[in-house]
Design a protein around this nucleic acid. Structure first.
Lengths: 126, 126
DNA sequence: GAAATATACAACCAAATGGTTGTATATTCA
DNA sequence: TGAATATACAACCATTTGGTTGTATATTTC
């Protein structure tokens, strides 16, 4: 489906909407950290932190690589840039790669929310 | 990090993490819309859309003004800018990491005695 | 004044979220 | 080899979320 783009936006912003996850992001953007190391930084169980890391990974905000028994996580700056572009797109500012996203959103918001989405590419049919 | 600041970030990203709310935002950034008009655009109850508008309003992403019996909503660019800055902060941390890596690579040939500091404003390579 | 319209909000419900503990499976180390 | 470590994941639980319907209150409009 073409709503994949909206699914991705949902996942991105949802992942960012938690302070623990944002803090994890700051750490993994500064450098690689194992899940254990990250878990040690918070007052919650290892499993809880592991779930936060999984949410971030599913949103594409971090990548994991394996080194022996540990999983090293590092931030993916491309996903952050995607989020930034989505914000610009909301304001109605279209530039760079956003033009490509536009075509997708144009259709997907019409499908997802019925009755045509709020695209700024005037298709006026009010 | 003040908790109020994190609360605000939570609210901002949470509000953005729903496709209906993002679609509402696109509309109210394009121009003022009454809650009724917005509600008419989606396949859900008026109350549901009203709640979405309330979430966006609490996050500061839109403002409402009263005109007679209707409430006109319009987007607040400042809130979107706040969200953008939060994302830029992450990118900035990432740039710092890249800067440190480059500094280390430089050092490996120079065999300098001095260890690099945490924050380097290095050239970005996009 | 009565009816229609626009908003607000409470109460309710199913599903998702953020946490927990427990178990299983690799991998490293003594 | 056996113990400790690192990860993964299932099952469970309380709270939040996104939707519903119903009711109340202004404001237009007829």
């Amino acid at each position: 489906m073409l709503q994949a783009s909206e699914d991705r936006a949902d996942a991105l912003f949802h992942a960012l909407a938690d302070r623990t996850r944002r803090d994890i992001l700051r750490r993994v953007f500064a450098g690689e950290h194992s899940v254990s190391t990250l878990a040690g930084a918070y007052d919650m169980s290892f499993a809880a932190v592991q779930k936060h890391v999984a949410v971030l990974e599913r949103a594409g905000l971090l990548n994991k690589r394996r080194r022996g028994r540990e999983a090293l996580a590092s931030g993916d700056v491309e996903a952050v840039r995607s989020a930034s572009e989505l914000l610009l797109e909301l304001e109605g500012i279209w530039r760079g790669r956003i033009g490509r996203i536009e075509a997708l959103l144009d259709q997907s918001s019409a499908d997802d929310t019925r009755r045509g989405g709020a695209t700024h590419t005037e298709k006026s049919k009010d």
